[in-house]
Amino acid sequence: MLSKIAPSAGKLLISEPFLSDPNFKRSVVLLADHGEEGTLGFILNQPSNLILKDLVPDLWEADYPVFIGGPVEVDTIHFIHRCYDKMASGEEIAKGIYWGGNFETLKILVNSNSIQPHEVKFFLGYSGWSPLQLDEEIEQNTWIVSGQYHPDVVFAHNEEELWREVIINLGPKYAHISNFPSDPNLN
């Protein structure tokens, strides 16, 4: 078993290099909730072709990128942020990282340019696991769990390099994985 860290809110899930599921290939998932009822998280490095104002018309200046949070309920919008001081709402899932909050307040802050793209990240849908499903996938080495990362990683817009960067950040034991090709036949 690669990962010795238990999944919990605020931890990152890093897919193993050869995961063939197109929803999670080379993905980094921020866990927002993990408990008896299951697990919920958001893929941090799967941008969509949409920007926020495409989805919410009354956010007329919102050129914020929208990410694919996962394959579940892709007709819903979710967000994480690091501006509790401005929002006064949201559930802290990691030090300085909040999930959700008052969307009406967020819209006012976005329209008044009081929040910048590096402070908030939007997702279509989410990633979900039934009770014990994620634990089984971790046991099968599908995921590495990490709790060591800088909050800037969560809000970064270097999607293509994020998976590799997070793997390298795990230390020498895992760094070699970052150089594996996405298709083992190319080796």
Rank of each mutant, 00 (worst) to 15 (best):
C83Y: 08
D183V: 06
G100H: 02
N49V: 07
V145I: 12
N102R: 02
P172L: 15
L31T: 01
H150D: 15
E165T: 14
E137C: 08
S3V: 13
F180H: 07
N158K: 14
A175I: 10
L132T: 14
P117A: 11
V56G: 05
F155D: 03
T39C: 07
A9D: 06
L52F: 05
Y84D: 10
R82G: 07
E139S: 13
L44Q: 01
I167S: 03
C83D: 12
Y149K: 10
L44D: 00
D85F: 04
A62Y: 03
Q116N: 14
D63M: 10
Y84V: 03
A62V: 03
I108W: 10
I43D: 00
L40M: 09
P151M: 12
T76G: 07
G147V: 11
K4V: 15
A32N: 03
G101V: 02
V120L: 03
Q140P: 08
F42A: 01
S182T: 09
L31V: 04
E161D: 12
I43K: 01
S48L: 00
A6W: 15
W163E: 02
K53Y: 12
L52A: 05
S130F: 07
E61A: 15
M87T: 01
V66E: 00
D21H: 13
I93Q: 04
T142V: 13
E160P: 13
L31E: 01
K4G: 14
D33C: 06
L13E: 03
V166N: 02
N179W: 07
I177C: 08
N111P: 07
G101L: 01
S15T: 05
G90T: 03
S178F: 04
V154W: 05
L52P: 00
D33Y: 11
F155L: 07
M87L: 07
F122Q: 00
P17H: 11
L124R: 03
P117M: 12
F18L: 02
E61T: 15
M1R: 15
A9R: 11
D85W: 07
E92S: 05
K86M: 04
R82W: 08
I80K: 05
L109H: 02
G147D: 13
L44K: 01
K107N: 06
S27V: 02
D54E: 13
E136N: 13
G101S: 05
D135T: 12
P172R: 15
R26M: 00
G96Q: 11
R82S: 09
N187S: 11
T76I: 12
G100R: 02
Q140H: 15
T39D: 06
P151V: 14
V120I: 06
I168F: 05
F18Y: 11
F103Y: 11
V56K: 05
A32K: 01
V110L: 11
P57N: 11
S15E: 00
L59V: 08
V153H: 15
D63A: 14
Q133S: 07
L59K: 09
D135K: 14
V145Y: 11
H78W: 09
L40E: 08
K53W: 10
L40W: 03
N179P: 02
S15N: 05
I43Y: 02
I168C: 06
E104D: 10
K95M: 14
K173M: 14
V110F: 08
V56E: 08
I14Q: 01
I167T: 05
L13S: 05
D33Q: 13
N141M: 14
A9C: 07
I68S: 00
N102A: 01
L13H: 08
G125E: 11
S178L: 03
K11M: 12
V153D: 14
Y64D: 09
E139V: 14
L106F: 08
R164D: 01
